[in-house]
Design a protein around this nucleic acid. Sequence first.
DNA 1: GAGCACTGC
Length: 721
Amino acid sequence: MDVKNNTIDALNQPDFFEGMIPRKTTSAQAEKLEDGEVNPFTNKPFSKKYKTILQGRRKLPVHDQRENFLSLIQSSQFVVLVGETGSGKTTQIPQYLVYNELSHLKGKQIACTQPRRVAAMSVAQRVADEMDVVLGQEVGYNIRFEDFTSPKTFLKYMTDGMLLREAMSDHTLSRYSAIVLDEAHERTLSTDILMGLLKEICKTRKDLQVIIMSATLDAGKFQKYFNDAPLLNVPGRTFPVEVFYTSEAEKDYVEAAIRTVLQIHSNEPEGDILVFLTGEEEIETACREIKWEGEDLMRQNKCGPLMVVPLYSTLSPVAQQKIFAAAPVGRPGGPPGRKIVVSTNIAETSLTIDGIVYVIDPGLSKQKVYNPRIRIESLLVSPISKASAQQRAGRAGRTRPGKAYRLYTETAFDEELLEQTYPEIMRSNLGNVVLQLKQLGINDLVRFDFMDPPAPETLMRALELLNYLGALEDDTSMTKTGRLMAAFPLDPQLSKMLIESPNHKCSNEILTITALISVPPIFVRPRGAEKPADAAKAKFVHQDGDHLTLLNAFLEYKKNERNPQWCRKNFINERSMKSAVNVRKQLLRVMEKKGLAITSVMGNNRFYSTIIRKAICSGYFMQVAHREPSGHYATLKDNQPVVLHPSSSIKSKPEWILYDEIVLTSRTYIRTCVEVNVDWLFEGTSDYYTDLSSFPNCDGKRALEQVIKYRKRSGDRKKKI
DNA sequence: GAGCACTGC
């Protein structure tokens, strides 16, 4: 019955798009449909809410540019669009494309990428409302762990990483008729690769429309890169922000920031304050101090009440919500109450707080740096760029005119700050990126058209790593192993370990360990509760190392998953654990799809620890430190002195330690470690240790040479027998 | 004897 009705409906459905030729439409045609009574995409009457929203959309700055936009895309495959905050570009441009492409009539889609998941989800919801459709139907989103689309979907918001993953199995992105790269100025790894890829794809796919959207004024670079693409500039809708500089450089920026907060609080009219600092510890200290000093001022009746809220990503969602609370109210006629948010960079892009009128910017942030010489990624407090400073200041002008206090001199701003932060691709270890590019069919990486090419040495390091892992041949072509590794959303060492684990009959355990390593730390150690936290962790400790400790904690968690108190009592980060469960599920699906066997050793083999650690070696054999005669450790590959991280479960001082990562903080630590037997390093599929000539001279190398000699002798003896 | 800026698949 229903089917029949639907058929009749379909037959009776008026051809709303009659007379509209894809890519030759006008804004008048589109607006006529938008102003109609019936939704042309669902054939249902438009709701009242739709009409209200439509009025608002027509007032957005980007609306005035609709016809301009259409004429640009109709004459150029690439278009660069610069739109400041409040222009409406993210919600409107994809809809303008919908009416111009008419992709839904030919079974194609329009994609709009975002660097962050929450943005993809929330914008998709907003646009579904604007188009008067149910989210997940005509308009949907696709992020990791969640594909909220249907066969009807023709407009899709997604993370840039998700589109990149799709490109790995569909090299021409054939299901899309148009792709919008939003927030391109953020220059994430994925955006940069996508830009290079789209430039390449468009050489053969002349039917693919590409829009690059950016918030900065640095559009020239994007235009030039995309074959001198035309530019559309859309003004934003923000309030002016007055910028102040210090007359001299500040020695102690935290102290200066606190002082500025208190000055604003006692002298300036109502309005909340946002302070940018670099990390958790700094933020917590500053919050305590501001609270203490502020209460003192209040007792002297000089100021109104203040509420101080820290903000950083590792904070629980509940704690993060506090930034949206209303400022405390001052006494009638008295000085105003004020909210003060002390935040990391997270408030620069990811989170927007309304009501901020004052911004304090010391001009610093923690930034990732990669040193290809010692092959270490680390975080370093570094000066921000001019673009970042501008973005930070802009946070003061979202609801009314604001003020930004830069805790550095104007000369420093002009002469010392870079225009833009170096793109991530120039600051990262590229192991994963290179594997992805190879999987995307890019064979010649050196000649790949990066917008900003990474350092050749970084590329060399990545190729070398992938070659040792057996992912690339000596001529850098991809191996079967490499293709298998690329199927997993993991770093190369992890994916190698995972795909080798069935050979060790412990893939079930390695799956868990892999998931736990790829999420934020599950063990928490709150300030002031270090002792009970350590005691709780001690119950999970496996003396052979941290990977096994992680595994123990996971297994206990699974037993107690339904007990809501368990995580808190055991100082386990529930968010991380849940995330690990999710990641594990996803990895398991890929394993099954690729026909990799799932087998367990725990519970039926008393040598499980040895077996699991051997499996870990199959991916991490290059990350081993040796105990030198002095008692200190040094890495084998670089003879880099390192210290076992104090959080490690390893309490003895074994001769050989395999580590997951090196962290450069107060010292050079190796973190997440297991004790290994040197013989296991020779038992894998790699020949990394057969030729030691390129190894730095150190005690570890001499020890290895001894082992090789011994193994050779005993091997010869075995042959004779 | 300890610090994880922030994202993403």
